[in-house]
């Protein structure tokens, strides 16, 4: 490449930078992010068309938007705004999401529930606080045997503490044969993070109060919780047990009780946490 050509290329690059700055800001007929949200919340299964203000798809858009508004209105009335930092996204579960450990566990008896549920590393209960880096509360006097404790580090460094309980007569196994109850605790800094939850459209929600804090009883379906921090790093954490989940947030920690047969049982466990 000659000196002249080098100079010309540099000039061209400068011109491209200049052109980039001189381009019109993209103008849209509808807000794509909001339209996408409406479609997702409406559980829109179709692909290949978009919500448009005009043209043939407009009628469908209106129907979807109306459906979404009704859905959101109903949810808002039923659930309120939501837990601080806890956000729920309604819609079909990601088809390509990692399969639920619980689903695969139903094939055979897992030898180690910590591995089967991908809960990280088993740790002695007495050193759980130290390993987790925060105080992990444990159910008291509700008839649960001693738990198996585990800690898993979720990128970018959030530590998920888990307590796994084997089945008993009082707490029978659910979809995962070797596990009855799973309690997870995550020191999510909810002021800095958004928590995104994916649920099956068939899942039902009920707003509840857990130990004086706002919480949700999520019955049925597969769930995932994701965290998106300010740098847009998203961490998705699966709900390990198919079935019911009681979730709440207190003192900067997100708590989940998974696998309880009913809300009363889950509440009893939640209120016994010390």
């Amino acid at each position: 490449m000659s000196h002249l050509e080098r100079h010309r290329e540099t000039e061209l690059e400068i011109a491209l930078h200049d052109l980039g700055g001189a381009l019109e800001a993209p103008r849209t007929r509808v807000d794509p992010a909001h339209a996408a949200r409406l479609r997702i919340e409406a559980g829109e299964p179709r692909r290949g068309w978009a919500v448009r203000p005009f043209g043939r798809p407009a009628r469908r858009a209106v129907l979807i938007a109306l459906g979404a508004v009704l859905l959101l209105t109903g949810l808002a009335a039923a659930l309120g705004i939501g837990l601080p930092g806890l956000q729920f996204i309604f819609g079909e579960p990601p088809g390509s999401a990692p399969s639920s450990p619980a689903a695969s566990d139903t094939i055979g008896e897992p030898s180690n529930p910590i591995d089967a549920l991908r809960l990280g590393r088993a740790v002695p209960l007495e050193s759980l606080d130290e390993e987790a880096g925060f105080h992990v509360v444990v159910p008291q006097d509700v008839g649960l045997d001693d738990p198996i404790a585990a800690v898993r580090v979720l990128p970018p460094g959030v530590r998920l503490a888990s307590l796994v309980y084997r089945p008993t007569d009082r707490y029978p196994a659910g979809a995962t044969p070797s596990v009855s109850i799973l309690i997870t605790q995550l020191p999510a800094t909810l002021d800095d993070r958004l928590v995104v939850k994916f649920i099956e459209s068939a899942t039902t929600f009920e707003r509840v109060t857990v130990n004086g804090a706002a919480g949700y009883w999520i019955a049925g379906g597969l769930h995932e919780i994701g965290y998106a921090d300010e740098t847009d790093q998203v961490v998705v954490d699966s709900i390990r047990l198919a079935g019911n989940v009681l979730a709440w947030n207190a003192g900067g920690v997100t708590y989940r009780v998974e696998g309880a047969a009913d809300l009363e049982t889950a509440q009893a466990i939640a209120t016994s946490l010390r």
Binding site: V30, P32, A33, A35, A36, R39, I40, E44, R47, G48, W49, A50, V51, I89, G91, E92, P94, G95, S96, A97, P98, F198, E224, G226, V234, V236
Partner: peptide, 12 residues
């Protein structure tokens, strides 16, 4: 818009 919807389905 379509990509945003597909991305949601692919978040897993």
């Amino acid at each position: 818009q379509e990509a945003f919807v597909k991305a949601h389905a692919a978040l897993g």
